[in-house]
Amino acid sequence: MELRHLRCFLTVAQLGTVTAAADQLHIAQPAVSRQIQRLERDLGVTLFRRNGHRLSLTDAGRHTLDVAHDLLTRADRLTTVAGQLADGQLTRISCVAAPTTLDYVLAPFVATLNDDDPFIAVVSVLGDEVHEAVAAGHDFGIAANVPPAGGLAWQRLTRVPLHAYVNPGHPWARDTSATLDELMEQPLLLPGRTDPTRTVLDAAVIAARLRYQRHTEVPWEQMRHALAAGRRGVAIGTELPRFGTRPVLVLDTDGAPVQLPIHACWSPDHYAAAALEQLATRLGTFAEQVVRPEAEAI
């Protein structure tokens, strides 16, 4: 089995005809047919069934599709890494983070990079999946929590405060802050349990020996703001206000802001670990100078 046969298989599966696949791959149609036949012989299964001029995947073909895609992705990654090793450069970085972190931390930083900086390819995952994704092979991660001991290298980037978002007609709309015990009396619109903001808020509530009285989990941040704007509760988050909601700083029982820490992580065994550490330092400086002031000014 050769990688070119798998690439041909994926192209035919995507486009549905040998003609279209041949045009995209810039090879003759008979060559495409021969590569598919060779792959079927090597695997011992039939991958396609004919419907006129179009081809559709058999059950075996559908099961083969994800594996073939994974193998080609890994092969392409190997080629990229080998080229970077040969040149002594880190030209592309696969970075994983939760969607809000990508929007408010990484994307603004990427916008400041130069032509000679690495290309940042992003992968959105749940907040509690970042460390696992980096351990599985992604180059760099941004998460709220510190990685488990003995695993990944990490660096603190910054902290951002949690806010409660209310309708302009809410009694808190002209206030600058609200305490946790005041918050517990409100109908809350909370992120899902795996969201880093929720993790930090839960920890603060437990430390204050308080309990949620009324709350609804709303994983999508825009919907939390929409519901808060519609007087359906008080939304919790770290993002910019949406739909006219008013931000109110959340304070713990000592009067200090409840804050979400942000960390970068990477494998200490990565071939470009030193370059990733330098990237983390640059990102940390940017986060302290730009991300944190903007979050505190909400």
Results as ranks from 00 to 15, higher is better:
His5Leu: 10
Cys8Gln: 09
Phe9Arg: 02
Gln14Val: 13
Gln14Ala: 11
Ala22Lys: 12
Gln24Ala: 07
Gln29Lys: 10
Ile36His: 04
Gln37Thr: 14
Arg38Ser: 03
Glu40Ala: 04
Arg41Asn: 04
Asp42Met: 05
Phe48Ala: 06
Arg50Asp: 04
His53Tyr: 09
Asp59Trp: 04
His63Val: 06
Val67Ile: 10
Leu72Gln: 15
Thr80Ile: 11
Val81Phe: 01
Gly88His: 15
Cys95Gln: 13
Ala97Tyr: 13
Ala98Lys: 01
Pro99Phe: 08
Ala107Gly: 04
Pro108Val: 07
Phe109Gln: 12
Phe119Val: 11
Phe119Trp: 14
Val123Lys: 00
Val123Gln: 01
Val130Pro: 04
His131Leu: 05
Val134Gly: 03
Gly137Glu: 03
Asp139Val: 10
Gly141His: 08
Ala149Met: 13
Gly151Val: 13
Leu157Asp: 11
Leu157Glu: 08
Thr158Val: 03
Arg159Pro: 06
Arg159Glu: 02
Tyr165Ile: 10
His170Thr: 14
Asp175Val: 00
Glu182Thr: 02
Thr194Ile: 00
Asp195His: 00
Pro196Glu: 03
Val200Arg: 12
Ala204Val: 01
Ile206Gln: 03
Ala208Glu: 03
Tyr212Gln: 04
Tyr212Cys: 08
Arg214Gln: 04
Arg214Pro: 03
Thr216Pro: 06
Pro219Thr: 01
Leu227Lys: 13
Ala229His: 14
Ala229Cys: 11
Arg231Tyr: 12
Gly233Thr: 09
Arg242Ser: 09
Pro247Met: 04
Leu251Cys: 11
Asp254Phe: 10
Ile262Gln: 07
His263Ile: 13
Ala264Leu: 15
Cys265Ile: 15
Ser267Tyr: 15
His270Thr: 15
Phe286Met: 05
Val291Ala: 10
Ala297Glu: 09
